[in-house]
Design a protein around this nucleic acid. Sequence first.
DNA 1: CCTTCAGGTTAACGACCGCTAACCTCCCTG
DNA 2: CAGGGAGGTTAGCGGTCGTTAACCTGAAGG
Lengths: 200, 200
Amino acid sequence: MATRTDAPTRREQILKEAARLFAERGFHGVGVDEIGAAVGISGPGLYRHFAGKDAMLAELLVGISGQLLTGAKRRLAEVEADGGAKAEAVLDSLIEGHIDFALDDRPLITLHDRELDRLRDSDRKMVRQLQRQYVELWVGVVREVYPGLGEPAARSAVHSVFGLLNSTPHLGRGGSLPGRGATAELLHRMARGAFAAAGV
Amino acid sequence: MATRTDAPTRREQILKEAARLFAERGFHGVGVDEIGAAVGISGPGLYRHFAGKDAMLAELLVGISGQLLTGAKRRLAEVEADGGAKAEAVLDSLIEGHIDFALDDRPLITLHDRELDRLRDSDRKMVRQLQRQYVELWVGVVREVYPGLGEPAARSAVHSVFGLLNSTPHLGRGGSLPGRGATAELLHRMARGAFAAAGV
DNA sequence: CCTTCAGGTTAACGACCGCTAACCTCCCTG
DNA sequence: CAGGGAGGTTAGCGGTCGTTAACCTGAAGG
């Protein structure tokens, strides 16, 4: 993984702040002036970087979905290349990846299942397709680990575990929670426990 | 439980439709004219029943939080009166109650953790207090069942299980899911499995 | 039968919001 | 050193939205 060290571009600054604001107050609850102010420029200046407010949301949501899917595919390939295609190991890797994302990009996780309907039709279709592929990838792995699970039940289980993992924004943002590592480990155990209980 | 058989009042109609619309498109994404149209009257007619759009959201959120807390307290008392104070039975009852709510009032479950910040300060404080009491009630019961869990971990676990149970809106609204009973049972098993995995 | 009032209606106001227009100012480059 | 584009600025337009005002109507009550 090529870790970024260079300064973020203005576009990236804007996207980051927009994500935070959208997550806090909802897409319709944030004005372009506020987004501009958050990066030190004023409202209409944003239009030098984005076609409009909708375009920012679209880029955020497509980006998230794509990143999740790409990461999952990479993890699947990595583990399978790494000796035996142990389904359990793949599932653990998927869970770990999703937790990393949920812990590091809470605003995005929040947006991802909240503002989808504010997108233009074509963008929404694209995001939905990426999300569906991501879910189906999980469903396949889960059914490999728990062959007793039917496909509908597996899909429900996957959605529910996403709900569990995506609860990070509700986990006291302050210093009250037991540190990132412990939280990640707790979430991982709970996800595995939930799947195990689902798998008869 | 006194089951309602009389027709819903206009106020109740309005609240129900408003909840659905707010859940679908977000508080700021819905106009008063749409809410009015959904119950067959036109925009400003709503002001005969509510002080304003904010008041509808406030009544919805306070109502949800209060209902959840009241139901949980009742279940706690019921099980404890019913012979031995078996903590496992209380936890099962809490889970069952939450699932019933999440399955029967999906729009409310959605609103409940999404539009809280759109409330006036006083209303938000009240909702937060009710929510906190609900969480703490769960935390107490969970720690009784799993004494190995520290308080912060138990609280995190409870929030995560809420995320799991509240995933019902994502569980294909169409006929693709395996029926209400099976879904409720699956969610229940997964919640118990998640807690068990959390409890060392 | 007259009054009253709950529960509607339409018109319109003021505020806000997304976006465009017009303009300015560096900095890079031929 | 001219000039041109990238990236800002402010002013303002058009539309939408929450809310109020003024008016209407049908049914209940004395």
